[in-house]
Amino acid sequence: MRLRADRERCCGSGMCALTAPRLFDQDEETGLVVLLDPAPPPGDHEAARLAILACPSGAITESEPT
């Protein structure tokens, strides 16, 4: 699994950081998405998919679906 996070699309809801804190954070100043792990281990794939589902702006995508 490869993840991408698009800061242009991001609306800073924090849903990714809430849902999958090992994979995503928010920039301290702007609150926009920070991708911590673009290639998460299998154990984090479900959390990644939930973060994609929870993201309101479609900023998080799976670039190489598994």
Binding site: G12, G14, L18, Q26, E28, G31
Partner: peptide
């Protein structure tokens, strides 16, 4: 407007 505020309402800050 929203981007002036998103940094103030992050999960960590809250």
């Amino acid at each position: 407007y929203r981007r002036l505020l998103t940094g103030k309402f992050t999960v960590r800050r809250m």
